[in-house]
Design a protein around this nucleic acid. Structure first.
Lengths: 402, 402
DNA sequence: GCTATTTCGTCATGCCGATTTACAAATTAG
DNA sequence: CTAATTTGTAAATCGGCATGACGAAATAGC
């Protein structure tokens, strides 16, 4: 026998459920739904052997999930082995939909994702939002949400929740934007300005991006650091498959990690914060460019054309990122670092110097750095999937007892 | 209904237990034991109302815990209210004992703690261990362990596990010391060199110190950063009442967070690591002192006498710590930072500059920094209590089914 | 002092959820 | 065509907690 290690572990699916027989059943419903979703069409017997319950128990669980419209019976499997063929089960394509929305500095976007993880509807509207007050922006967003919901309902889906990604800090109530410098919003409760007929969750776009990476990334581990940037530099810390949020919900403020303690002053009060070296504004200035609408696109374009000033600016930003990430990696020992969001578009020019710096400062093998496959789509997808995830984690909350 | 936030949450007591009816019972046993321990003598009815089970259910749970020797019946309570007085229950003072051991650079220590949290036996042996090979050191430690176990057994206790704190990195198998620079050990499996008759857990002293702070500190929150130092500077990250260990178990390496990216070279390959500015060796050098046996005592003594060189060296170390902690606080948003271990003895001279630096670099209120009440005793106590904690978290593992 | 009231601990009973056991159905192997 | 294998379901059982009732032991009111 080995004594427990007293680790910080996330609760994972359904941990919020009470520790009673009913809670147990709800967790088992979630386990069945999760495995069917993850491992394609499966028979009841296959599910049972996977999750360690008996066929009889799984049968009743499946019945309940079918009655709720979350699972559907595809009919008898093609038999390849001896014995009676099972009846294939799959998650329904006409059940709940997760509605994800994103308030970007230069765009609004909304999408609907079904239980299978397929994006069933999507709308994007370009347009600068910097400096606009929350009311008109969210009215416009509400419009888009209604479009997407209508389209989803046309396909037999019904909205199970709305998740909104914003470029800023969000309080732990998951409703209030504490500070979004790029929009000019602060201390704004978004709930009254958005459709009231669905459950609402608001979160930082870096957090949603990290969750998207966790859920949709190929081979992404359960412990990683997800770095993203839109002017500010945010990181999301994923520990054992869950987000680390911090006491006030402000964890992951990589942008204000000191890189050179005597560097230039920062708005945060400090000196030489990472943002001074790798923030969008700083990079544009270092490259001798004027900020305009599509800043990342501009940088990427110039860099691709071979503009040496831009390339040098990006190299230096990568080095600064490497210094800050060395600290983070030493503190957290993650399995990898992922560059996501808008950053992924600049990765070709950031990555070499970043990795060099990280390797130089690490004894032994350096923490691997990769680039998100999802790129700028991460936050929106993460938002929509977070709703779906909530259904998968407690299917009983939808139909029966919430 | 509010959608879940997908947070990283630790599992807390008994989360490793399977999600079955038996697992539920074991968790309920743990809940009963925990509340009786935490809230002094309680009647069955009082326990029931606290944990939300019925009196009948608690009765059977208590019966089982009494049969296992973990609880004892103190007899009828002094009645102050109407109604039949309850029968007071308390955790047994003659049940399992947690054996904690510590391998320090200058000492060995072992103690035994009972279920109530009382230290029932303790032995400390001074003597430099730097450069000694593991075999003789652990043979000596085994001696001390036997002494403490004998004494504990004389008082009716029996050892429920052995936890050893070492000043170095420990692999996630909780047995192997990967690197302990101050001892000169590396890649050593300690299990064969220690008594084999009890379950063994080996861990970093900073981790055990943080757990001690969590379990024994007065008013310590469930999210904090515990900084400790013995030559190397280690931190332990506590998130929602659990340790964050990292993929390889190396999380919390605060000593190699870059403070000045162009600073002096460090053994880790980097430059300007915190250890270069706030490590014991660096501080001694900056103060113009020679390293000797009791380095922290020497520094504290001179500083107390008013030695301006030493005070300046400690001030500068505090500033460097402040820079590194700014990064950590930005990344983790903890509720507080606690200085523990040997550091606590130097706190009077480190703290002002540390707090000043942290406050300067923080927008809004700075993260509060406090000093551990346990001081250098933290690691040893944390080790012993970790064993007790394991029993409290799953009492059934002791007697019945492990 | 006596009775009513309140609370405690326990017992008998019932419910809920999963397991066990048994069996019919549907397939392959020989 | 029969034996073997696997699936899905139904009936019985078990483990664990809740419910309701009861005696025991205290206080409160008379």
């Amino acid at each position: 026998m080995t004594a427990p290690l007293h680790e910080a572990r996330p609760t994972g699916p359904g941990r919020a459920l009470p520790d009673t027989q009913q809670g147990m059943r709800r967790r088992n419903l979630a386990r069945v739904l999760h495995t069917v979703r993850a491992e394609g069409p499966l028979s009841r017997a296959a599910v049972a052997s996977r999750i360690g319950l008996t066929r009889a128990a799984v049968s009743t669980l499946v019945d309940e999930l079918i009655r709720s419209g979350l699972l559907e019976e595809l009919g008898p499997e093609r038999p390849g082995r001896v014995g009676r063929p099972g009846s294939a089960l799959a998650v329904s394509g006409r059940g709940p939909a997760g509605i994800g929305a994103e308030v970007g500095v230069d765009h609004l976007a909304v999408c609907a994702v079904d239980l299978r993880g397929t994006t069933r509807s999507r709308v994007i509207r370009q347009g600068a939002n910097r400096g606009r007050s929350p009311q008109p922006v969210l009215a416009e967003l509400t419009d888009l949400i209604r479009q997407v919901v209508d389209e989803a309902e046309g396909e037999g889906l019904y909205p199970a929740g709305l998740a909104v990604a914003v470029p800023g800090l969000v309080a732990r109530d998951a409703r209030t934007v504490v500070r979004a410098p790029n929009l000019g919003w602060h201390d704004t409760d978004l709930a009254p300005l958005l459709p009231a007929d669905t459950a609402l969750t608001v979160d930082n776009e870096a957090n949603f991006g990290a969750l998207a990476e966790l859920w949709l990334g190929d081979g992404t581990p359960r412990d990683f650091l997800h770095v993203s940037a839109e002017i500010g530099i945010g990181a999301a810390v994923v520990v054992d498959g869950g987000l680390l949020r911090g006491t006030r919900g402000f964890a992951g403020e990589l942008g204000h990690v000191p890189v050179r303690p005597d560097g230039p002053e920062c708005a945060c009060g400090g000196r030489g914060c990472l943002e001074q070296y790798a923030g969008e504004e700083a990079v544009l200035r270092a490259a001798g460019l004027e900020p305009d609408e599509d800043r990342v696109g501009l940088l990427a374009g110039r860099a691709a054309q071979g503009d040496e000033d831009v390339r040098r600016a990006l190299r230096d930003a990568g080095t600064a990122l490497g210094v800050a990430l060395t600290g983070a990696v030493n503190l957290l020992d993650p399995q990898s670092v992922v560059l996501g969001g808008e950053l992924s578009g600049l990765a070709p020019w950031l990555l070499p110097s970043l990795q060099e710096e990280l390797a130089r400062r690490t004894a032994g093998p350096a923490c691997p750095v990769s680039v998100s496959r999802l790129g700028p789509q991460g936050p929106l997808l993460g938002a929509a999937h977070s709703v779906i995830r909530a259904v998968l984690d407690d299917p009983a909350a939808l139909a029966g007892q919430p």
